[in-house]
Computed example of a mutant assay.
Amino acid sequence: MKTHLERFLEYLEAERNLSEKTVISYRRDLLQFQEFLRTTRLCLKENLSAGEADKSPPALDWSRVDKTAVRAFLGYLHGKGLAKSYMVRKLAAIRSFFKYLNREGLMSLNPASLVSSPKLPKKIPSFLSIPETLSLLQSADPPESLGSQASQGIRVSQSHLLILRDRAILEVLYATGIRVGELARLKVGNVNFEERTVRVQGKGKKERIVLLGESAAEVLKGYLFHRSRPEDPPEPVENLPLFTNYEGGPLTDRSVRRIIKKYVQKSRLHKRITPHSLRHTFATHLLDSGADLRVIQELLGHESLSTTQKYLHVSMGKLMEVYNKAHPKA
């Protein structure tokens, strides 16, 4: 018989369409909470028989969990020195679980909703200036000979192909603002070169269309041209990963992060830059150029406008410049 926790995880995957990675995160957080309750013997089932009382692990009664138990768990995490961001995430997982139990009629209220989340310091997203962005992109410039080879229909070596791939990754991340996981999941068929758009599967398996700049489209075309080989199997090209590793398999999130780190070091940018920094850079540059915040929200795939509004803090200098020019009393 499946436990309430197992059914909840199935619900997340089947009904809420959460990604496998997100479901694994929920599982890990809730199992830790469950283990804490068992270890501290909080909220165990009442009137257990002698055999059940000695059973390992002891049986929990989720309906007995109250706000005191949830706060005790947060106190335990704080004592272990966990960052507040991790505590907020774990509390969110617990709230979702009890919301599900409440919906299923297994509890009358959600005890975690009565517990306040730890306050997180407001972080201004890291981003690159336009000169820094160009420096990063140029650090992955392929040799000039590759252009003439492509015009003659000559494929490049494997080592040169990886340089083309890396440049295409940098261009696509900056041109579209997509997440690293979204990039790793892209198939060749997701790209429409004629319309210069990319169909992306985001959080909750929701699809959206993002735009591909001319520069990114040309670099990506060049990479795909050089990657194709006459001896390739007849599998439809549309189903192949857009970006592949040395052996032809799909790139992982971690591989993309390593690629970004490599070119950040090569371009001598003295900043901690991640794939997500290019997402922040994309949004900040659009906002600085006068793009509407709701358009940026749509391109980033944010459900809430408040998530996108953090870029207003980044672009405050630009906002002040516009204000000073436009306001008669400025």
Rank of each mutant, 00 (worst) to 15 (best):
S135H: 09
L9W: 03
V23F: 00
K21W: 10
P58G: 11
T68F: 11
L128S: 01
N47P: 12
P58T: 04
N110S: 07
L31W: 04
I130H: 07
L60I: 00
T22Y: 09
S117F: 09
I130C: 04
A53Q: 14
K55R: 15
D54E: 15
P111L: 10
L134I: 09
A59E: 06
D141P: 00
S56Q: 14
L60D: 03
K123C: 06
S108Q: 15
Q138A: 10
R38Q: 15
L120K: 13
T3G: 11
K122A: 14
S25M: 01
P57H: 01
R41L: 12
A59F: 00
L106V: 00
R71C: 08
L44Q: 08
I124P: 13
G51F: 15
L101V: 01
A112L: 07
S117W: 06
V23Y: 05
R38E: 08
A112D: 09
Q32S: 06
L82K: 09
P131S: 02
E6Q: 13
Y76P: 03
K90F: 01
L48D: 00
H78L: 10
P58C: 11
H4M: 01
Y86L: 05
L12I: 01
G79Y: 01
L60E: 03
M87L: 07
D66T: 12
S63K: 15
S63Y: 13
W62G: 06
Q34M: 08
A92N: 03
P111F: 12
E15G: 08
D141N: 09
I130T: 10
K67N: 13
G105K: 07
R27D: 08
L128M: 07
E6P: 05
V70F: 12
R89P: 00
T68P: 00
L44Y: 08
P125W: 09
D29G: 06
S49W: 10
V65Y: 11
K119A: 14
F73C: 04
C43D: 11
R89K: 06
L42A: 14
F8A: 03
E46W: 10
S117H: 10
L106G: 04
E132K: 02
E13N: 02
A140L: 11
Q138D: 12
G51P: 10
S126M: 12
S139R: 02
P57G: 06
G75V: 00
M87V: 06
S49N: 13
K21L: 14
F8C: 02
K99M: 03
D66A: 09
